[in-house]
């Protein structure tokens, strides 16, 4: 089943969830490595890989948002404060998944250096070449990334806890249903 229902995650939502999760698992340590790496000719490609992954995540997140408007996902299981908290964390994660690639795109544009998708396809600049824009956007990129890491820790921890408690939250995202 491709579409979501009131109590099931459809295949498209699950594919997008795990696809984006997999890319983020690669992207976060790569970004952290880039932030303190001495660049040279041998590792210059990592910057390009980071930008390509970031823009791919951005595109998939946009697709996921559009899909969830077309086919809304089921609400978090259970109720009370835990469900409200789960919903708030989901919204915050979406916010960061938009803010991080967008701020990276703005910052990269502001450096004046071309952004190439897959080292081939030029991506248009979305900000003027400016030290001010660059510094501000990279600061947002950095803070939002740290926030995302904290939110993911809560999200993953809560999913495991609820699975251990036996409500099938994690199983539902894996198989579509409990």
């Amino acid at each position: 089943m491709l579409r979501n229902t009131t109590d099931r995650f459809g295949l498209i939502t699950r594919a997008l969830h795990w696809g984006i999760a997999g890319l983020i698992v690669v992207q976060l340590p790569l970004g952290l490595r880039l932030s303190d790496m001495q660049p040279g000719l041998a590792n210059l490609w990592l910057y390009s890989a980071h930008k390509t992954l970031g823009l791919s995540i951005f595109a998939l997140v946009a697709l996921r948002i559009v899909w969830h408007i077309i086919s809304p996902p089921p609400a978090p299981m259970g109720g009370g404060w835990q469900a409200r908290m789960a919903k708030a964390v989901h919204w915050a994660i979406y916010g960061m998944m938009v803010a991080i690639p967008l701020s990276g795109w703005v910052a990269s544009s502001a450096t004046g250096i071309d952004i190439l998708l897959f080292d081939r396809i030029p991506v248009p600049a979305i900000a003027p070449v400016s030290a001010q824009w660059e510094a501000t956007a990279f600061a947002i990129h950095d803070i939002a990334t740290k926030l995302l890491m904290a939110l993911l820790a809560i999200h993953i921890g809560a999913a495991f806890k609820r699975e251990i408690d036996g409500d099938g939250t994690l199983t539902r995202m894996l198989r579509g249903h409990r």
Binding site: L44, T111, G112, I113, D114, V129, S130, A131
Partner: peptide, 10 residues
């Protein structure tokens, strides 16, 4: 990238 960075405002 080096040429762009070199000729850029920074």
């Amino acid at each position: 990238f080096a040429a762009q960075a070199m000729k850029g405002p920074k």
